[in-house]
């Protein structure tokens, strides 16, 4: 079992919902990332999702687009992101790290070269937004032989007949996109998510993380009642944007507070689930 699978299994057995925060690597600058990763863990992150900057993030909303632009003003590359993970692993060998991004930077490096490099620095899983299971030949084998988990997205529009490919080719967890839209969108329909997740659960063999549009304690609490993991991104990245001119102390303070809110919301949901 991989570090990611072990972690999620242990949490499940303990009746806990996994908190998975997302930040864009290199945002607001390359020096910030490793310290932020440690902060996230300290404030209750179970898994870290680290965004790989790409010039054209077509599935992301304005908040993450701007984060990517900030990182790219420093020319943060996929190699740089792997270096941040390597440094993070010098102090933290427990917390799984999932890279999230778009395919082209990985294509440019070559599937095998990338998979081997990622695995050797301590990356645990890869989620590539524009790589559906159908196109994943070669890519999957490379990740698999480097012992990296493959996280795929499932959305409200995913028909049942595509789920078997996700079961077959994915591993670690399934990332359920909780709404039709880009990251950080506003409207999250709790009823709708619950219905869809229940429909999907019967067909999927992996834990389900829920992300896109979880912006506060209330939505985090509701999603924790439904899913195995809650993924929060834009809500944190927004705080980096708001505090970037003040410096890393203020960024850490704001992110720390927000993470504590999310952790509390998940813990409350877990208590409730435990009583049922």
């Amino acid at each position: 079992m991989s570090r990611l699978q072990k972690k999620l299994t242990a949490l499940k057995q303990a009746g806990k919902t996994a908190l998975i925060p997302y930040i864009t690597a290199g945002d607001p600058n390359p020096k910030a990332t490793v310290a932020l990763m440690h902060l996230l863990v300290e404030k209750g992150a179970d898994v870290i999702e680290l965004g790989v900057p790409f010039s054209d993030p077509m599935a992301d909303g304005p908040v993450i687009q701007k984060a990517v632009e900030r990182a790219l003003t420093h020319n943060v590359s996929l190699d740089d992101v792997l270096e941040y993970v390597r440094v993070f692993r010098e102090q933290d060998t427990e917390t799984p790290v999932v890279l999230m991004g778009y395919l082209n930077p990985i294509e440019a490096q070559g599937y095998e070269a990338f998979a081997n490099a990622a695995s050797s620095v301590g990356v645990d899983a890869v989620l590539t937004v524009d790589m559906p299971p159908e196109e994943s030949a070669g890519y999957l084998e490379a990740l698999q032989s480097a012992h990296l988990d493959r996280v795929f997205l499932v959305s409200p529009t995913t028909p049942d007949n595509r789920l078997s490919a996700v079961n077959e080719k994915g591993s670690g967890f399934v990332y359920y996109v909780s709404l039709k839209g880009v990251t950080g969108s506003k409207e999250l329909d709790v009823e709708d998510v619950a219905q869809n997740v229940n429909r999907l659960r019967s067909s999927l063999t992996m834990p389900m993380g829920i992300g896109f549009g979880i912006k506060d304690e209330t939505t985090a609490f509701e999603m924790a009642k439904i899913g195995d993991a809650v993924i929060v991104g834009s809500a944190l990245v927004k705080l980096i944007e708001a505090n970037q001119s003040k410096g890393s102390y203020d960024i850490h303070l704001a992110i720390g507070e927000k993470m504590t809110e999310f952790r509390d919301a998940l813990d409350r949901a877990d208590t409730l689930k435990g009583q049922e």
């Binding site: 395919l103 997205l153 529009t157 028909p159």
Partner: peptide
């Protein structure tokens, strides 16, 4: 060529 699209669009493309 191919279909390198976000999951939300896969059903619409199909």
């Amino acid at each position: 060529g191919g279909v390198f699209a976000p999951e939300t669009l896969m059903a619409a493309l199909e």
